[in-house]
Write a protein that binds this DNA or RNA. Structure first.
Lengths: 227, 227
DNA sequence: CCTTTTATGCGTACCTCATACGCAAAACCC
DNA sequence: GGGTTTTGCGTATGAGGTACGCATAAAAGG
């Protein structure tokens, strides 16, 4: 048997509690003291199971995602689309994920499972193995970037809704000097920004779909130029 | 004349000093005390010119970028490519930019100038105004995501180079069970990860170029399906 | 059953930060 | 110079991360 006092908590418990706090109040609310309080322990008790707060953040990042969804039968395109939308949904479910600094190439079992599914979606295509990896990485970074913007804007909206109203279009109209910014001035004049809810949830979903559409077109063109 | 004691510093000075600190030692080193010391002032003196640290961060973000470069003559594709690469270079020049939380839609004069240039690159195309905005936003988020990954991995490498050596391929080989992760196992078996310098600067540049290529193909296909 | 060993729980203390508050010095007006 | 206004900044408060060391619980050995 193992000697010594029995642990009453372990790293997984701490991670769970930290995630609960982050889900409820954001990553900023995750302090060692707050997490300990959540578990009914003393602050310093956590340090027996977790080297530092930074390590706790990594554990949270590894545990943030669910398993990837099953992909539909059929062409690669439908599979990739489902995958990308599920990834976006996963990140949106835990927005704090993007605030945790990455420390290396993906190595958590969950991340690798997602990686595998995306590679699997490309199985029927004539892409080289290295190209598949490139395609998947680009897709991940696109989704990542889109999610980042999406979340930043959502949170910005909660902080100060006025920035997203008609006011924004008017401010642009004032700043966008046709001589210094001719293209922007033209777009502003066309009325693209004269809406009440700039970038609300629907807009952002449409934005994502459009970008994803472009990306898939690009993959299709690349495959087409190959066979 | 204006009454009262003359200011010896202004917000722009503070922003400059803060950027100098961030460039030299990273955003984490930017504290009010550190910035004040850099300028030879007392900590609290800064608060006369800057409401909070958060405001200072926004000022830094606005001032982080240079002007966009002139774009080449010719087709939209060459212009967009130059623009995207310049944007990536700009972010890589000030990696801390990505750590500053965004508060709303772009409104700094520099951001809008970059926005304008990208829209201008699409001037000769038959895209609707709204589509142009969508294309540019997607491009920005793609570059943003790519830069984020790029920077995270670069910094991870500095912290722990072993993670990026041949060791990584071996670890993958151990984790990637062909039953649970068939696609990944196949890729690993093909030797894609058996290199000494996974994701060094050249690799990441190639990764970016490939992703950008896919994106541009996608835009071209979208334009083609239009005319 | 009592002692020894070993790992855990956690109280105390220190350091770094952001920032509210208020006073004193400087520069302008008359 | 006296009054007014604005800046520079010293002091203090509270939050957060974490090093250190002691008391305690649990198993092992006698």
């Amino acid at each position: 048997m193992k000697r010594g006092r029995k642990p009453t908590i372990d790293a997984a418990d701490i991670t769970r509690a930290a995630i609960a706090v982050a889900d409820a109040e954001g990553l900023a609310a995750v302090s060692m003291a707050r997490v300990a309080q959540e578990m009914g322990n003393a602050t310093m008790a956590l340090y027996r199971h977790v080297k530092s707060k930074d390590e706790l953040l990594q554990l949270m990042a590894d545990a943030a995602f669910d398993e990837p969804p099953p992909l539909p039968e059929g062409e690669w395109r439908g599979k990739v689309e489902v995958w990308a939308k599920a990834l976006l949904a996963g990140i949106r479910r835990r927005p704090w994920f993007l605030q945790i600094p990455l420390n290396g190439p993906p190595s958590g079992p969950k991340s690798l499972l997602w990686f595998d599914r995306a590679l699997g979606a490309l199985d029927g295509t004539p892409l080289e193995p290295g190209e598949k990896v490139g395609v998947v990485m680009s897709l991940m970074t696109f989704v990542h970037g889109e999610a980042w913007l999406n979340i930043a804007l959502t949170q910005g909206f909660e902080q100060d809704p006025a920035q997203f109203s008609r006011e924004y279009g008017e401010r642009l109209r004032a700043i966008a000097d046709p001589r210094r910014m001719p293209a922007l001035a033209k777009i502003v004049a066309a009325g693209v920004f004269d809406v009440d809810d700039l970038l609300d949830a629907d807009d952002m979903a449409a934005e994502f779909d459009f970008g994803l559409h472009l990306f898939l077109e690009g993959i299709a063109a690349h495959i087409g130029g190959r066979s």
